[in-house]
Write a protein that binds this DNA or RNA. Structure first.
Lengths: 183, 183
DNA sequence: CGCGCGTTTCAGAAATTTCTGAAATTAAAG
DNA sequence: CTTTAATTTCAGAAATTTCTGAAACGCGCG
């Protein structure tokens, strides 16, 4: 049933899965749902991908933990059906939020913890280095938070601004544009 | 030799390593180098972390593949010494560039391939979905490219602009700010 | 209750990834 | 050319992760 093209896409997502912090199975299941116009139930997925029923169940559970799929019910049918959101930007927002939660927030928390409990005076270099790292993460996540507040329409407009943005950055901190000094 | 604080930081990076697409060993080695004021050679790392010499060698090789460490030589010493760059923003730029290369570029390439080779007419929904995904990735990577062109000083200024940026976004596509229509 | 139908859990099997010690390699110095 | 000090490679061991079938579970219905 799935076309050649769909099949390749699904396999690609499977291969990339490990680089994205999910596994092959989960990547393939997600890809299949992503391309499917109608909601799929677990057995549809078993049939399409030839994984064991329990593996599919685990995979779906993980996708739900990532908030990447929605559970749906059809009238007069007890089975669970799943879809991915139609809105691509909603998908990417979720993805980024979840990755931040898993990959960045724990480190930020840990850095703050360590800085708090650090015995005064000692360990100067390392402590300073951690502080710089923390500040950098705070700057980036602060920026992310701002962007993420925007409605999609505005967010897309901002992303598409391109070089206009770099001009604004030139005037951000100083009145005159920054220049290479000639000596 | 490493303080309690350093030790905890190193262990944390080890644990996070798997979420970041490197492994525990590599995460710990990186953390150790990151906190170290002076360059370290492989045997320093073996001593600090108690990994086998060959494991350290592999780990350093992987960090070099990621461009995350610099190889240094001290006068009258044939050993290889390693450091991380002093500049935190240089580090994060490298990290993002490498992750993009591994996690995003291959998918963008694959999507373009599949769209090219797609037989005309058929497979409407899936093809459209892939097209939307590709466009979204292109918008995001285009924005990233713009940001990445900025000198660090300007980049930091831009990140710190905070809510000013969202105001600009409001005027980007339209003359008047976007409003909820009342009916 | 007990049946039917679907989902989830779980212990062990299979696969994959990571780690090690021994051997090979490289390169400066004598 | 040989010695010596270092790094790298590699095949197998160890550890971890993923996958499976079987059993347990949940729940609406007669």
């Amino acid at each position: 049933m799935p076309s050649q093209i769909q099949q390749e896409f699904v396999l690609h997502f499977g291969e990339m899965g490990s680089r994205w912090g999910i596994n092959r199975t989960v990547g393939q299941i997600y890809a299949l749902l992503f391309l499917s116009e109608r909601p799929l139930c677990a057995d549809d997925i078993v049939e399409a991908l030839r994984f064991s029923r329990s593996n599919v169940s685990m995979g779906l559970k993980e996708l739900q933990a990532w908030n990447l799929v929605r559970l749906r019910h059809l009238p007069d049918d007890r089975r669970d059906f799943f879809t991915t959101p139609d809105d691509m930007w909603a998908i990417v927002r979720t993805l980024i939020a979840e990755r931040k939660k898993r990959e960045i927030d724990p480190t930020l928390t840990k850095l703050r913890e360590l800085e708090m409990q650090s015995p005064e005076g000692s360990d100067d270099y390392a402590l300073n280095r951690m502080g710089e790292l923390r500040e950098m993460i705070e700057a980036m996540t602060g920026f992310y938070d701002e962007m993420n507040k925007l409605e999609t329409e505005r967010l897309v407009a901002l992303l598409k601004m391109g070089s206009k943005l770099t001009k604004i950055a030139g005037t951000a901190g100083r009145v005159l544009p920054l220049r290479k000094s000639k000596g």
